[in-house]
Amino acid sequence: MENPLEQFAIKKLYPWQAGGMDLSFTNSSLCMLITVTVIVLTLLLALRKRAVVPTKGQAFAESIYDFIRGMIGETLGQDGFKFVSFVFTLFTFIAVGNMLGLLPYSFTFTSHIAAVGTLSVFCLILNIIFGIKHRGLRYFHTFFPEGLPWLMAPLIIPVETLSLLAKPFSLTIRLAVNMSVGHIMLQVLGTFIVTMGLFGFIPLVADMCIIMFELFVTLLQAYIYTTLSCVYLSQAISDEE
């Protein structure tokens, strides 16, 4: 039986060392590049005719945009509409990356903590930058709320710092674990289809059901990741303690 974790192995396609760092182009990088290409080409194709009465493609692209706008309206309010392009990019990148990972012989880069973690840390840095930009020095009250006695500082500051640092971690773990588990289940059941011979149709049916479920999970996880990123962003830019 093939190891179900082998599908997550990073393979170097073009080894490249620079300044003592490994900057090789891997199968994960290739899949990210394909994901970006698919998104850009689909949107360019869908929006090539910008008509008042939209074509099917334009309506599809606009519905995603409306969906993201609605999500931002719910979590960030009117002020958040300037983040539409960022959140749109985040959602489409994760959703398409998840979906392309379901194709045979492809690679799910969203199942890697390193890939998703980098994205989450980038989101955290953006949160801090926008937080400081919106609230100025008041942003640092996140670490030590106003009105507390200074004696509490050695207790509150580490707790709030850990709470902030845990945000990208929880975002990463949720997405990476969900994607990994689904793919491992698919692989294990796929092996049973061959080894069970005549009764292989039982795991085949189960595999088909799981693929349908995984398709739903890919979009759901992208939605949860994006919504929580918006919630964290709203916490960073709002003055509520």
């Binding site: 850990l162 640092l165 845990a166 971690f169 929880s170 773990i173 929580l228």
Partner: peptide, 21 residues
Amino acid sequence: WENAVRVAVEFVSPVFIGICI
């Protein structure tokens, strides 16, 4: 379930980060 998983992850994450640091 969505909320339950969210609460569980939110609880465990800082502990893990604290242990790592």
